[in-house]
């Protein structure tokens, strides 16, 4: 590999990180919030796909992609709130309900999405952060969607709010020990309901990014499991919003590895290059699992880490 080739691959990975990471970021942040409250919602694949369909449909019907984003958030909010409400009932398993909502959300999206596969809906515009360079490859790599910036800002805000605000304290306490939160007079079911609903909203917005920006169209194969993977990334990111962003960026960059290596002529074993995000994540997890006490980062009430 020459220096020029390396440059192409690196640029593609940076571009890929920016292009591909946003849905992962939104879902992961939403799930992070949910899990911080002590609930797990595995159903974000459903929110993501339904959000993508709703955003596309609304953007097509109204001509306003941002209205589509709002509608996607609304759809995600409803699914999330339903999850949160059902899981407040005694004996109901949140993981199972999440998987049920994955099925329900994708089912609804496919059912109502049939008539929106054909039309072209207006998509979201990008901000050309690299346009001043006059280099088309750099300009392309640095095409940034506003939602990407919103996602990063949100992560910073969540990180700050969880540590420094009363709301953050209540949320963390609910997630770490329901008993002590209850003793403080916190309505834990309400906290979890809100956290799950907001988490669902974020996942829905992640879906809007898929259908309105990148790859920027609606069809049934659009997500190919990104919502489920993003939920898994939260565990990988150890329930830290900033680390969620890094995980999403890493995942996006690794996803760009396969196509960009082929574009410079390295295509032997492309199945494994295409699986790079999964392989990389697994190895990082194995390598780091015992280096710090991973479990201590986990909210104590979380069923999946108990």
């Amino acid at each position: 590999m020459t220096g020029a080739d390396l440059y192409i691959v690196l640029l593609a990975m940076i571009g890929g990180a920016i292009r591909v990471s946003t849905p992962f970021m939104f879902v992961a942040l939403g799930e992070c919030l949910t899990e911080k409250s002590g609930r797990i919602n595995l159903g974000h694949e459903g929110n993501l796909v339904l959000g993508a369909m709703v955003a596309y449909a609304v953007s097509f019907m109204t001509g306003s992609p941002w209205l589509g984003v709002l509608a996607a958030g609304g759809a995600g909010l409803v699914l999330g709130a339903m999850h949160g409400w059902i899981c407040a009932l005694p004996r109901v398993n949140d993981i199972a309900v999440g998987i049920a909502f994955m099925s329900f959300g994708t089912g609804l999206a496919f059912f109502f999405g049939k008539s929106f596969i054909q039309p072209s809906a207006p998509g979201l515009e990008a901000i050309g952060l690299g346009d001043w360079t006059g280099n088309s490859a750099i300009a392309q790599a640095l095409q940034v969607n506003p939602l990407f910036l919103v996602g990063i800002a949100l992560a910073v805000f969540l990180s700050w709010a969880l540590a420094n605000t009363r709301w953050g304290l209540i949320l963390r306490m609910t997630g770490d020990s329901a008993a002590s939160a209850r003793a403080m007079g916190v309505n834990i079911d309400l906290v979890r309901l809100l956290a799950t609903a907001v988490g669902g909203l974020l996942a829905g917005i992640g879906g809007a990014f898929l259908s309105l920006y990148y790859p920027g169209s609606w069809n049934e194969g659009l997500s190919s499991g990104q919502g489920l993977m993003a939920v898994a990334l939260v565990i990988f990111a150890r329930w830290d919003p900033i680390r969620c962003v890094w995980a999403a960026l890493l995942f996006g960059a690794a996803g760009a590895l396969g196509p960009s290596l082929q574009s410079i002529g390295i295509s032997q074993g492309y199945y494994f290059f295409n699986a790079a995000p999964y392989i990389l994540t697994l190895f990082i997890m194995i390598a780091s699992a015992r280096s710090k006490s991973a479990a201590s980062d986990a909210p104590g009430e979380l069923s999946i880490v108990k």
Binding site: I8, L11, A12, G15, G16, R19, V20, A137, Q140, L210, Y214, P215, G216, S217, N219, G221, L222, S224, Q226, G255, A256, G258, P259, S260, Q262, S263, N274
Partner: peptide, 15 residues
Amino acid sequence: SMPVREAEAANALVN
């Protein structure tokens, strides 16, 4: 059918 990767591939080719 893998829309995101197809978009990535198209972008890599343009680049």
